[in-house]
Simulated scan of single mutants.
Amino acid sequence: MNQELIIWNYIRSNHVLSITSFHNGEIWAANLFYAVDYERKRLLFMTSEINTKHGAMMLANSHVVGTVCDQIRDVAQLKGLQYAGNATIVNTQEALDIYMQQFPMAKHHQETLWMITFTALKLTDNSAGFGTKYTWNLE
């Protein structure tokens, strides 16, 4: 199985990411639910662009980094993803439909829909052998 497919299978098996934004020397992190737009190889999430610190910072600087990780206690089975990419607002019905399909409760607390397009992905998968790494980089 190729590395990109292994990484995307892991991303699709989870639903919470950490995202770190930075602007003017400030750094801020948040945890968010995400939906996968596998066809376009992007993640979709909702957050306010003006009522959250990370949203305001992403408007000013779209470059973000973050993680997706399991909550497994057995170190031999632990997996985790590190990523770098760009977070931008997306205003398409198709993207909204993908997000709402996974998180229908968001209809009642709808915020701004964002997408992350990746520039680099690194998955550590101890279940494939301690410290096994799979990587993907935008070329």
Rank of each mutant, 00 (worst) to 15 (best):
T88E: 13
T92A: 10
G80S: 14
M105K: 08
F45P: 06
L59G: 09
N51I: 14
R73T: 13
Q110D: 05
G25E: 07
F33H: 12
Q82H: 14
K107E: 13
V36M: 00
T47S: 13
N86R: 11
V36A: 06
N9L: 10
I6N: 06
N61M: 04
A106D: 05
Q101K: 15
V36E: 10
L5G: 06
V64K: 01
A35Y: 02
T47C: 11
D37E: 02
Q71E: 15
Y83R: 00
A87I: 06
G80Y: 11
H54K: 07
S48F: 03
C69P: 01
I98L: 08
A35I: 02
V64F: 00
L78T: 03
L96H: 06
L78A: 11
A87G: 03
Y83F: 15
N14D: 11
A60K: 14
I6C: 08
E4F: 13
G55V: 07
T47V: 09
L5N: 09
N24W: 01
N9V: 08
E94R: 08
S18W: 05
L43F: 05
I27N: 01
M57G: 00
Y38R: 15
N61L: 05
Q101C: 14
L32A: 09
N14V: 12
V75W: 10
V90Q: 00
L59S: 10
V75R: 06
M100F: 12
N9H: 08
M105L: 09
